[in-house]
Design a protein around this nucleic acid. Sequence first.
DNA 1: GATGAATGAGGCTTCATTCAT
DNA 2: CATGAATGAAGCCTCATTCAT
Lengths: 218, 218, 218, 218
Amino acid sequence: MTNGLKTGVASTSALRRQREREQRYQTILAAAERLFASEGYHGASMENIAQAAEVSVGTVYFYFKNKEDLLVQLLSDIGFRIRELVGIEFSRADASMEGFERAGLAFFSEFCTRHPEKIAIFFRESVGQGPAVEAIRKKIFDKFIGDIVGALERLAKNLGLAFKSPHSAEVMAVSIVGMYERVSYQYLIWRDRSRELPMVAADALAFIVGGVKNLCAA
Amino acid sequence: MTNGLKTGVASTSALRRQREREQRYQTILAAAERLFASEGYHGASMENIAQAAEVSVGTVYFYFKNKEDLLVQLLSDIGFRIRELVGIEFSRADASMEGFERAGLAFFSEFCTRHPEKIAIFFRESVGQGPAVEAIRKKIFDKFIGDIVGALERLAKNLGLAFKSPHSAEVMAVSIVGMYERVSYQYLIWRDRSRELPMVAADALAFIVGGVKNLCAA
Amino acid sequence: MTNGLKTGVASTSALRRQREREQRYQTILAAAERLFASEGYHGASMENIAQAAEVSVGTVYFYFKNKEDLLVQLLSDIGFRIRELVGIEFSRADASMEGFERAGLAFFSEFCTRHPEKIAIFFRESVGQGPAVEAIRKKIFDKFIGDIVGALERLAKNLGLAFKSPHSAEVMAVSIVGMYERVSYQYLIWRDRSRELPMVAADALAFIVGGVKNLCAA
Amino acid sequence: MTNGLKTGVASTSALRRQREREQRYQTILAAAERLFASEGYHGASMENIAQAAEVSVGTVYFYFKNKEDLLVQLLSDIGFRIRELVGIEFSRADASMEGFERAGLAFFSEFCTRHPEKIAIFFRESVGQGPAVEAIRKKIFDKFIGDIVGALERLAKNLGLAFKSPHSAEVMAVSIVGMYERVSYQYLIWRDRSRELPMVAADALAFIVGGVKNLCAA
DNA sequence: GATGAATGAGGCTTCATTCAT
DNA sequence: CATGAATGAAGCCTCATTCAT
């Protein structure tokens, strides 16, 4: 306080440290993402990841508790980004199904095309990797399903419609998530048709719209 | 057949051998199925599997090329059974969507309830286990998708309808498969609501019917 | 039963297998003993031990659960041998202190001289190696102390003597064990005076005899 | 001392520094003692110790050469304190065995009860930790043995007694140390009977007295 | 003097697979 | 055909120690 300079200098170097830490963290995470997607979760060794990130194994363990933690952080990040991009569209959906379409386009045309590795990790590499990973996967899925259920309920309320059964909203949400998953898997991971994805997406969205209509009644 | 006693005796013992071989094969496969589902593909060691099947490790390797082969055979069997039960309903579907509903019920109310381990293996444990496994998974998915596409095309033809786009049929099929997958995962693996599954299935099927209608036009 | 030869052959090869197994087990244990004594418990790696035993690392793990198990088996064996050699003399001690002297000579002049590595492992390398190892150490010590307490009580009874306090017998036994331990450590491990050990032992035993007398009273 | 103000100020701050340094040193040593005793020498990492002492790892390395040094300093300190408390009683022992009893009580009733962690470190955690540590352990033991030998020799001289053999004094000293060690281990570390220790000690000391008498003759 | 991020050698352990009996 | 002991590559992870700031 009494010493502007010193504090200034100190905070500057402290900030830089902080920044560098964050950068290293991200570098390692990025390397892991790349390798998990290309070599598979088990195929990528901690050694490989460290090399790809240009750090030592010890450094990886300084930033992440263990290999599983690497995957968990990756999943958290992926889940966050998807919701940021897609969930927001669902939450805007009110009196029409336009929000559903915008959400789908955001996912298929933007997210999938830009981040095929994230799709591979979320839908392929993180599946069946033990309880801890399954737990976070379930959490992410549940949040996403919640977003869609919210959108459906607002839609029904605003349009004065009722669902066929008490499960309907949830089942629809789960179904929609399942479609997202398998369509992206089929057209992005198994065959790379990322260019056709927008058209494919259009059909998928029409399917969703029809499905939703059929489970609501005046 | 035409030979005398000696051959008869020989063929009898040969038959018994054949039968015993087949039995052993199935015993091992069953043990693997159980363990893959409960401990995970990586969590189950060949030693474990051999013990569970009450044979030696060597014997497991006599009947199966390697661990991956065990999974592949399991997947083949699962794929076959699903098509046998579900695919047949799709192929019967002609001029109405009833076939789609029967297929869905067969899957959710029969298959899922009776074989939750097969669902776990197909949708969880076999995901992301390397190229060879992915290949057979893709093959099974593709066949199943083909069944549904066939049903959709017949339906369209018989009702004089046209698809919105050339992709439509395939996208719908992929979507339906995705729904099957995630709905069973959500209501069977993540939470055990096998008793509610029939009701859930009803909603899911209504969703499908609506989706299909929306992608066909007179 | 009906086939002497076959059973004979079978049992022969089965026996040989059994024998070879036991031999391998002992070979590995011996290698571990040697290395633990010379390099220290932590200084000896599983790799080293495997090499010294001329087997692969995997084989070591086939016979022993882990490194700690190796130490535990070693300790069990050492404890057993000491009691076999020394404890028997205590149990023979009845109406005089001769048994105490024979026991001491057996320990110092026979066991220590013949198995300095076992002494090193029991009194040096196995100390402070975690709860599991401490547990077995305590068990062995307690048994040994029990042997001595038994001898003391018989002695007292036969000579019509009484102990000073209820603890006396146990405290004496613990004291005697402590003497055994430190005397062997001092004259065998820290300096190699194995040749003088018999004389040293004589003095130590005289010390014990005097101590015992002082804690018993007519 | 003789300098004026400036130096005075300087020496004041220098003194404070000196004091702070000494404090830090002791804080770290205390943290190490606590952790070595509770987690074991290997179980306590330098990181743990630094955290417990509320300093950084680097600081620990500023005050101590390495982890072993931490243990060595600890041992030195423990050895010093034991001699300070116990050895002094032996050195006072002249014409009677009272000194031996006072020494024993000092050890069992004072030192053990007050510093169980030091006992654990000296008799458990520092055993078998490599040549350097063994060397200092031996040095401490030897000094302590020397104290006792001195007391024994003075006693013999003053009472006009002779030892049975040239080894006798040393063997007795070693035996006494061994008793101290194992009795404290048995009644303090393995079972916490610190409250009964005084009584146990009484018996142990009577044992020693008897033993000594038996090895001296008029 | 103090900090704490970075290092990397080295340890323990697992497990799919082979092969002599 | 069945057995199960043997293999050894490869993985994950720890931790004492260093050094630029």
